[in-house]
């Protein structure tokens, strides 16, 4: 699943790899509700993130998707257990938790030009002080919806709908093709 599609070694300006299978649970409800916040905490170990943020540690994360929606990330095999746990603890509140692991595909972008590769495709201010580790951004990637967050310096995790995986892979490959460095956000990192 996780074979590199454009390696930096091919001359592409960033490495694009398909992310391994990722467990995802969508949780909808009133995010200020104490029961929901406690259920998220006990299922993931993470607090409900602030607006536009992602809380993640040890492969388990919680993404703020909208004022009434969270996306919980965990290992693919842990989804049934976590889902059961969430549904148990949310049985008395108005909330919905669903396994959506197969709804979305993921990509890992890495390299000093990764920011530029994304900035070419998304209407997002990707200046390092405007988009940093801990933020999650849902946006438009070329012609389709996508969301991304940072895994570390120069590493981005991007998710898109699985039906659009081939398209996203193609536009990312074009955006990272050899010789296409624009050096907007990577100027200080690379002399190329």
């Amino acid at each position: 699943m996780s074979e590199p599609m454009t390696a930096g070694a091919d001359g592409g300006i960033a490495a694009i790899a398909e992310a391994p299978l990722q467990g995802m649970i969508t949780l909808r409800g009133d995010l200020s509700d104490d029961t929901i916040r406690a259920a998220v905490k006990s299922a993931t170990g993470q607090k409900v993130p602030e607006r536009g943020m992602i809380n993640t540690a040890d492969g388990v994360g919680v993404c703020w998707m909208s004022p009434d929606e969270l996306l919980i990330l965990c290992a693919h095999g842990d989804v049934p257990d976590k889902l059961h746990q969430l549904q148990e603890s949310l049985s008395r509140v108005h909330a919905l938790a669903v396994n959506v692991s197969d709804a979305r595909a993921g990509f890992i972008l890495s390299g000093p030009h990764a920011r530029d590769v994304l900035a070419k495709l998304c209407p997002v201010d990707l200046a390092p002080d405007r988009f940093a580790f801990g933020q999650l951004r849902r946006t438009r990637l070329a012609q389709v919806p996508a969301a991304f967050w940072m895994l570390g310096e120069d590493r981005f995790h991007l998710i898109c709908f699985r039906s659009q995986k081939q398209y996203v892979s193609d536009v990312l490959t074009v955006s990272a093709q050899p010789g296409s460095a624009v050096n907007v956000w990577s100027k200080t990192i690379s002399g190329t």
Partner: peptide, 10 residues
């Protein structure tokens, strides 16, 4: 709602 500033295509 989400505080994001973006151009109109989003």
């Amino acid at each position: 709602v989400c505080g994001v500033t973006a151009e109109e295509t989003e």
